[in-house]
């Protein structure tokens, strides 16, 4: 007989009140096709209005509700409850990030790193009247990187991010390659400069945690390795310095 309720064990922490994080357990009655986010919204609605978490689109597009659920990085909206049963559903905020409240973490370091790689088109040429043309083949090359929704799962999963606050983190590198590999972009040199240093791609130890964490199944490590090679080639081109 299918279970008609699930146990949610959620880490709570309000830095203004609590000295340490603690777990609160909720019993959520199940409806057909429920996701973890549906469960959280039910708890907020019916059981505990003080629970804090981020969520916006409910469709795995905005990347707001990435959490650490039952030993894996998942988007709450994209995670069905039934396959996780009969275990209780343990939810932690993104690990190793400063907790603002409960499941809400401080994303500032993530966005600061993202800003450093200049995540916008750099092309001094005047834009053509209709569009900057890109062949389907060139477009396909950056397909994977475009899927990133900036949920910070990879950032939070990376042991180098845990140990080095200056490290830019996997998401920034992925987005850097999204532009470096884009045939319409001409900012390659500045971006490679922004990532090709000690706290950039060279801090990466190829642990593959980012790739494992990505809820969009992007191979983040591939982009980081591609940037490492670009960085070397850039360093060797002494006549361009």
């Amino acid at each position: 007989m299918p279970q008609d309720s699930a146990i949610f064990k959620i880490q709570r922490y309000d830095p203004e009140v609590d000295t340490l994080p603690y777990f609160t357990t909720y019993n959520v009655s199940l409806r057909k096709g429920m996701t973890v986010l549906d469960g959280l919204l039910d708890i907020l609605d019916q059981q505990d209005g003080s629970l804090a978490f981020r969520a916006s689109c409910r469709g795995a597009v905005c990347g707001s509700d990435s959490m650490y659920i039952n030993g894996a990085f998942r988007l709450a909206c994209n995670t069905a409850i039934v396959p996780l049963l009969p275990r209780e559903i343990t939810i932690n905020p993104l690990p190793y990030m400063r907790i603002v409240k409960d499941l809400v973490v401080d994303m500032d370091p993530f966005w600061t790193a993202y800003e450093r790689i200049k995540p916008y088109l750099i092309n001094p040429e005047t834009a053509p009247e209709r569009e900057r043309y890109q062949s389907p083949k060139d477009r396909k090359h950056i397909d994977e990187m475009l899927d990133c929704i900036l949920c910070a799962s990879c950032y939070s999963s990376c042991p180098m991010v845990w140990s080095d606050s200056e490290f830019l983190g996997p998401a920034a590198f992925l987005k850097a390659y999204r532009f470096v590999g884009d045939s319409r972009d001409q900012g390659q040199r500045e971006r490679i400069k922004a990532v090709g240093h000690e706290n950039g791609v060279w801090r990466c130890h190829t642990v593959f945690n980012c790739t494992e964490a990505c809820p969009k199944k992007i191979n983040v490590t591939w982009s980081i390795e591609a940037l490492k090679r670009r960085s070397i080639v850039n360093r060797l081109k002494f006549w361009q310095r």
């Binding site: 880490q11 909720y26 030993g71 642990v207 945690n209 494992e212």
Partner: peptide, 27 residues
Amino acid sequence: MIRTAKTRERNLNTPLWPANYRTGMWA
């Protein structure tokens, strides 16, 4: 709400707990 424990419980739901390691992390 069933219970609220205001103590620090052992938290194994973390990527640092070996049961949550994947191949690359073990390597």
